[in-house]
Design a protein around this nucleic acid. Structure first.
Lengths: 171, 171
DNA sequence: TCAAACGTGTTGAGGGCTCAACTATTCCTA
DNA sequence: TAGGAATAGTTGAGCCCTCAACACGTTTGA
């Protein structure tokens, strides 16, 4: 019943896993030692910095930074301790909260950016041609569109993943 | 000085980040609720299951599963508690340790695999044509080859510690 | 031969994340 | 316009991971 991965899919999937783990490990290390923050925090600062007024509702920030509400709440608490973000009440909705990037936070981001971009370049883009970069971007767009759809469509039946080798595909 | 990302690169990079966070979030959730293990542990079980004798040296297992030694050590401790893996001394090198997949561990993997594969398919491969799958696999191969090289031939010019490099907006 | 260097694996502290439960506010509708 | 449902955000427990330090076995070279 299970639609196991064929050889091409298996190969691509293992490449995906390897690239992701290695790339993120290196990015995290670079950001942590070079700028004292994990990548998730960097992303939060970036999104705030791109917003006019450098201020966003928590929930909107969560969406932009691909974060859960809970994760963002913990993260902003930490970022507040560091003095990089400030919480403010939301005038139009008293349930809400606003997160505002402080000048110190902006400075931390400006200081972190060059080293981070260099690492992304060194690990990823330096390996790829312009055509490959474009192709990769299109593939990601396709996947994102698909994920957004499947998020609304229901019915997840049980099904399998990597073949446990010894059981053979049967497993 | 900084070689910022151009528009295509920026677009691809943001797609990469979005796909990765969403995909892993869904995979982790599926595996956790469906099989009671995080993806990192699933990967460890897979690598062991693929080895004749279902046994590997810790360091080799770490490499295969894209794990640090420390992470693997913690993980195997946990997997031992669950009864899915057993540690054994290594005869040829008394520093070493072997990790062996137990029958219970194999059963857990066989039970977990269908649901996991289905999720990978639903979230990723169902969105892509065979050509896209192949193209993606080649791109990952390229990146992996590049990463392996840059790992040995260092000379990261900017140095591991970046001085908060004053300048430039961007982010 | 034996000490220094190296390799292998473990440990514990600390931090980030998920999950579920919770408070507070706003929306919806009868 | 009250009451329930939905939304916004927070919190704490528990788990996983990283980092640095450690223990111990092996290799090397003077």
């Amino acid at each position: 019943m299970t639609r196991w991965l064929d050889d091409d899919e298996q190969h691509t999937w293992r490449g995906f896993l390897a690239v992701n783990r290695m790339l993120f490990e290196r990015l995290e290390r670079q950001l942590q030692t070079g700028a004292g923050m994990p990548h998730a925090y960097y992303e939060i600062l970036v999104r705030l910095s791109e917003t006019p007024g450098r201020t966003l509702r928590m929930s909107e920030l969560a969406t932009n930074a691909h974060s859960s509400r809970s994760r963002l709440s913990h993260a902003v608490a930490r970022l507040e301790e560091m003095g990089w973000v400030r919480r403010k009440p939301c005038a139009s909705d008293r349930r809400g909260a606003l997160a505002e990037l402080t000048d110190e936070g902006m400075a931390a981001l400006v200081a972190a950016a060059p080293g981070h971009v260099e690492e992304v370049r060194a690990q990823l883009f330096d390996a790829l041609s312009a055509e490959q970069v474009a192709a990769l971007g299109e593939i990601y767009d396709t996947v994102l569109a698909h994920m957004a759809l499947s998020h609304m469509a229901p019915s997840r039946t049980a099904g399998p993943h990597m073949t446990p080798a010894e059981t053979n595909a049967g497993a």
